[in-house]
Structure formats: structure tokens, C-alpha cells
Write a protein that binds this DNA or RNA. Structure first.
Lengths: 232, 232
DNA sequence: GCGATGCTTCGGCCATCATCAAACTATGAA
DNA sequence: TTCATAGTTTGATGATGGCCGAAGCATCGC
């Protein structure tokens, strides 16, 4: 009768407003302390602490000790992916937190999705890599072509190091704002790192928004053009 | 501060055990009555009724009147997709409902994911269509090639009718058992219909399992071979 | 009309769980 | 050591919400 995974405990874990706020805040990809997360969630420290321990034992978060601070972060890519899909569904059924405003517009243009680039520019990046045959679409996990590997190396990406890591290098991730694919996984993070290191854009400290300067956006579009001459 | 969609209400809706059971039962793709769902959820009819009305107002289910029966079904592909991803996460964090047994083995081999084929054979189908260039991977929404359209027509699939429907024809859907892609959307449903109509397989009435006969499985593999001569 | 079936609503009971204040532990700094 | 900051645990409170029985509608068949 009962078959397949049991989704209720996980969903219930995410379903509490305070915990949902904590998880949403951690979708910024940054690890945050219990005190910071209490502020994000709008509850006192003790309350946040119990929530955090539940999220950790539930496998959604990891805890890292650093002196007297304890940093919490999203546990796995799979958790981040699930949250993103839930955001898509929430957006689709009209459960938006705020009315559209300038912040939302910036979110739509460029934001972090856990640790990689999402939004319009994230989609552009993905389309560029596909159109230039750097990546080849292969179901949920795109593959890097041999010529693509060279191009990525020229950008300063150490593919060998990425290969060694246990997380997938490439993963397709679906935008809640656009319902289109952008690039997640180790490569997605590596490229976002380049964007930030090149000062093309800065992370908004209070949100998941990524703010490109005009010059930075131009440089980004030049580095990742879309080539239309490749055969469909 | 608060940005992006609000996932808490949706997750809370899914997070109740009775409601999760209802949703999981409806992942069979079949529309079920309130009484049937009460049995699936293990609660009395009044309790199920309140749950169902919450799920409908929450946008997760649709209600269809048919005489004095009321049939409930998953509202959209997006809802089905979200549930599937949640199942993947639940499986990954060890929240399995049952220990692996014969039923689970059958589920792994072939099952319905909402209204299309999932499991090992679902993945095989997808790989076959890609390898034979019937479909071309295009992010989350694969495209049917022109030659592929002819081949599908030869199987008796009315692509024009599918095109008219509002739902996407092709959608990539991720398996919780395999973490690989299979085919969802209108085409996925159409092919499953053919499999059932050809008596290659039957649906288990009590679960999401699809049971292939030996001959049926052979016919299925013949109809959807994997060609290895196409260049990677 | 009548009864029967399928579902919804109402009322009240009960358990769970989120919440916070206060006490406690642990780490770091002076 | 002593104080301060970060976090956890405890205990009590309160509210939300699931649950069921009983009553109320609605639809079908006769």
C-alpha cells in the first residue's frame, strides 16, 4: 500500500514559516550563524536553535563549528534543488511574499541560486555555453565537450579539481522566475566565482541579488556570447 | 528582507502525513474519489474531506464532479514535478516508507510518475528516443525532430492533437529511484497509453507499479531500441 | 416522493509543536 | 580568573490544527 519515499516529514520540516525563512536565507549560499538566522526568521535565538537542530537532524542543513560561532548551510545540492522547485511551485500558485518591486526586478535579472547564477543572466550563461558547444545537453546532467574543456580552462577554471569533488560538475537547474534552465553544480559555482572575482558584479549583502555594473554586464555578455550559426 | 516566493504554506500543505498520502496516491495519475483517498490516507471521510478542500484551495489538486462522485487529481505538471523532487530528497535522506522488497523492485523497474512511464524502463525509453534522434535534448523541454515526428506518427501518436493541448508535449522529469531523466508531458503520456493499449503491460490496481509481461517487455525494447552508432 | 450513497460542515476533543524566558554550557578575550 | 558573547536546554504557555462523530446537503435510483 505505502510505496516509495515518505515525503511528509521533509515537507513538514520545510513547512514551518520560521524554518522556511531560515532555508530561504541560506539559499543565498552563504553559511550563516544561528543568531543571524534567528533574525532572518524573525524569532528569538532559542527558537531558532531548536529549528536549526531539527533541520540538521533532518538532513537539510549542515553545521560547521568555527570558534564560538556555529555556521549553518544547505546540506546538499539536492536540498537546494528541492527548495528551488518549491519556490517555482509557490510562485506558480501565487504565494509570492511581496508584490513585484525594484528588489524583485533585480532578483529576476541576476541572483544566486544556492551557489550559482540564476535569473535572466543565468539563463543567458547556460544558453551561451550550449550554443557555443561548450556544454552538450544530456538530460539533467549536461556534459562538457572536449573543445569546451579548453575554453573553460582559458577562463581559469580548474576542471581537474572540479572532477575530484564529489558534487556533480554540471547540473541543470530550473528557474522559478523563468521556468528555464540554468547551470548548477561545480561548474556553475566556478563561473559565478569568476564573475565576482572579476568585479563584474557584487553580491547584495542582504539578499540573493547579484548586482552587475554596466561595464561588468558588458564584459559578461562578451565572455559568454550566444552563437546562432551553430546548426539547431 | 523577504524576497522570492513563500514556500512555507505549500510545504506545510504537503507536510501533513494524511495529505502526503493523498498526494502520493494521486501520483498514480488516476483521479480518485474522496472515499478512496480517505482509505489511502488512513483517515475517516470527514477528515479527508477537509484535507482535500485545503489541497484544492492551495492549488495542488483539482476537483471534478461526476454525478455524486467527486474526483480529485493532481492539478498541474508542476505539482507532480515538485512531488517527484520531494520524493527524491526523501529517498536521499533515508525517509523510505518501507524497506526494499518485491514491491519496491517492481517500482524501480517500471511505474507511473503521474501519467507517464518512470523507473528503469522509463529511462530506457528516454535514452532510446534521444539515441535515435527522435528527441533532441533542449534543457528542460526536449524537442521533437522532424524525422522523429514521422517515427512517432508511425507508432500512432497524434502530434497535432498534442500540440493543441495546453500542457507541454515534452518535459524532462527526474526519477527519484535513479536520479536520471525520463520523459514526461503529453508525449510521455501518449507513449504510456500505447504501452497499455498494446497489452505490453498492465497497471497494478493498488499501486503505481506497471507490470510488463515477458513478451510485452521484449516488444517494448524492440519498439524503443538504443542505437549506439550515433556520434556522442 | 423515498431511501441510499457520497460528501461536506459543525462541534468538541486532544496532541503536537512553536514560542519565549530563564537557566545553563561553552568558547574567547582581558 | 573573570567577564562577555554564542548557543543549547528546560519548562511552561498557548495556539494551531488534525481528528472523529453526528448532523446536514446533494445526487442518484426507485
Amino acid at each position: 500500500m505505502k510505496d516509495g519515499p515518505n515525503i511528509a516529514p521533509i515537507a513538514a520540516l520545510i513547512g514551518d514559516p520560521a524554518r522556511a525563512n531560515i532555508l530561504t536565507a541560506l539559499m543565498s549560499g552563504k553559511a550563516l550563524t544561528a543568531t543571524e538566522l534567528a533574525g532572518e526568521a524573525g524569532v528569538t535565538l532559542p527558537t531558532a536553535s531548536t529549528h536549526l537542530s531539527k533541520l540538521v537532524t533532518g538532513g537539510l542543513l549542515t553545521k560547521r563549528h568555527q570558534g564560538r560561532h556555529k555556521y549553518f548551510a544547505i546540506a546538499t545540492d539536492q536540498v537546494a534543488e528541492t527548495l528551488e522547485v518549491l519556490m517555482g511551485l509557490a510562485a506558480g500558485t501565487g504565494h509570492l511574499r511581496t508584490r513585484t518591486g525594484p528588489r524583485d526586478q533585480a532578483m529576476k535579472t541576476a541572483r544566486v541560486c544556492y551557489d550559482h547564477l540564476a535569473g535572466d543572466l543565468g539563463i543567458h550563461l547556460y544558453d551561451s555555453l550550449i550554443s557555443r558547444d561548450v556544454l552538450r545537453d544530456h538530460a539533467e546532467f549536461p556534459e562538457i565537450t572536449t573543445t569546451g574543456g579548453d575554453q573553460l580552462a582559458r577562463l581559469g577554471i580548474d576542471l581537474e579539481a572540479l572532477t575530484k569533488a564529489k558534487r556533480p560538475i554540471c547540473r541543470a537547474c530550473l528557474d522559478w522566475s523563468e521556468r528555464r534552465t540554468h547551470l548548477a553544480g561545480g561548474l556553475g559555482k566556478a563561473i559565478l566565482d569568476i564573475v565576482l572575482k572579476s568585479n563584474w558584479a557584487k553580491r547584495d549583502p542582504d539578499s540573493r541579488v547579484i548586482r552587475f555594473s554596466d561595464a561588468g554586464k558588458a564584459a559578461f555578455l562578451t565572455a559568454f556570447p550566444i552563437e546562432r550559426n551553430s546548426s539547431a
